[in-house]
Simulated scan of single mutants.
Amino acid sequence: MRSFPGKDLKMNYCRNPDGELRPWCFTMSPTKRWEYCNIPPSGLGSQCISGNGDGYRGRIGITESGNTCQHWNTQFPHKHGWIPDRYPCKDLEENYCRNPNGEKRPWCYTINSSVRWEYCTIPQCDGTEQSAGMSSGCYQGKGLNYRGTTSITVSGRKCQAWNSKSPHDHGKTPEKFPNAVSTEYLCCKGG
């Protein structure tokens, strides 16, 4: 078994201990062993917010509680009036978090029929909200040094703890990948 020291396999936080394309985790879903995480890479457009985020045009499509966002051009499971064709300047594309109405931060309708809408967790560009920047963060390259606290996959699945063998048995435990708590939290800057 290969050993990967310094990979900081704590809790159920997304990591890249083995050189995958980007940070990932084992999921809590018995039918999906692992998945890439919902972390924006740095340098791909605006992946952080300034102020209330009304100008945010990034590609995060997961709410703060892990619900996947509903596509703006669909009316199911939630009917709404934010039709992309009616508001072309709001960039209501795909299922990405947006703030078309001046809320306190970007939000979206969710695909969870019991949760109409929720705010999204997107880091502040200026670093004034440390908790937001550190909980989401972003990564460079393949994310080998990513040490943020995101624990949700791109499809909204919760990550399995690295020291757990359930629901998926694996060899990437904190004991085999020890040490190194990195303090490198990268701020995502646009462009």
Rank of each mutant, 00 (worst) to 15 (best):
F4G: 00
P5Q: 11
G6H: 08
G6R: 11
D8V: 01
Y13V: 01
Y13T: 05
N16Y: 07
G19R: 00
R22G: 05
W24A: 02
T27L: 06
M28Y: 00
M28R: 10
P30K: 09
T31Y: 08
K32M: 11
W34I: 00
W34T: 04
E35P: 00
C37I: 03
C37D: 07
N38H: 10
N38D: 15
N38V: 00
N38E: 15
I39T: 03
L44C: 03
G45C: 05
S46P: 03
S46V: 03
Q47V: 01
C48R: 03
C48V: 01
S50Y: 09
G51N: 12
N52C: 04
N52Y: 02
G53F: 05
Y56H: 10
Y56N: 08
Y56C: 09
R57L: 03
I60C: 10
I60G: 06
I60T: 13
G61W: 04
T63L: 07
E64A: 09
S65C: 02
C69K: 04
W72V: 04
W72F: 03
T74E: 14
T74C: 02
Q75K: 06
F76C: 00
P77G: 02
K79Y: 06
K79W: 07
G81Q: 06
G81W: 07
P84Q: 12
D85P: 01
L92W: 06
L92Y: 08
E94M: 13
R98H: 09
N99Q: 12
E103D: 12
E103M: 11
P106N: 11
C108V: 04
Y109R: 04
T110H: 10
S113L: 02
S113P: 14
S113I: 08
R116G: 00
R116M: 12
W117D: 07
Y119N: 11
C120N: 11
C120L: 12
T121F: 05
T121I: 07
I122M: 09
Q124Y: 13
C125Q: 09
D126W: 11
G127W: 13
T128N: 15
Q130I: 14
S131H: 15
S131W: 15
S131E: 15
G133N: 15
M134W: 11
M134D: 10
S135P: 00
S135A: 13
S136N: 06
S136A: 14
G137C: 12
C138S: 11
Y139P: 01
Q140S: 10
G141N: 11
K142C: 01
K142Q: 15
G143T: 09
L144R: 03
L144H: 05
L144Y: 04
L144F: 07
Y146A: 03
T149P: 00
T150L: 09
S151D: 15
S151N: 15
I152S: 05
I152Q: 04
V154K: 14
C159T: 07
Q160G: 10
W162T: 01
S164T: 09
K165L: 14
S166G: 03
D169R: 05
P174R: 08
F177R: 01
N179Q: 09
A180T: 05
A180E: 13
A180Y: 12
V181N: 11
V181T: 10
S182V: 08
T183G: 12
T183K: 14
C187Q: 11
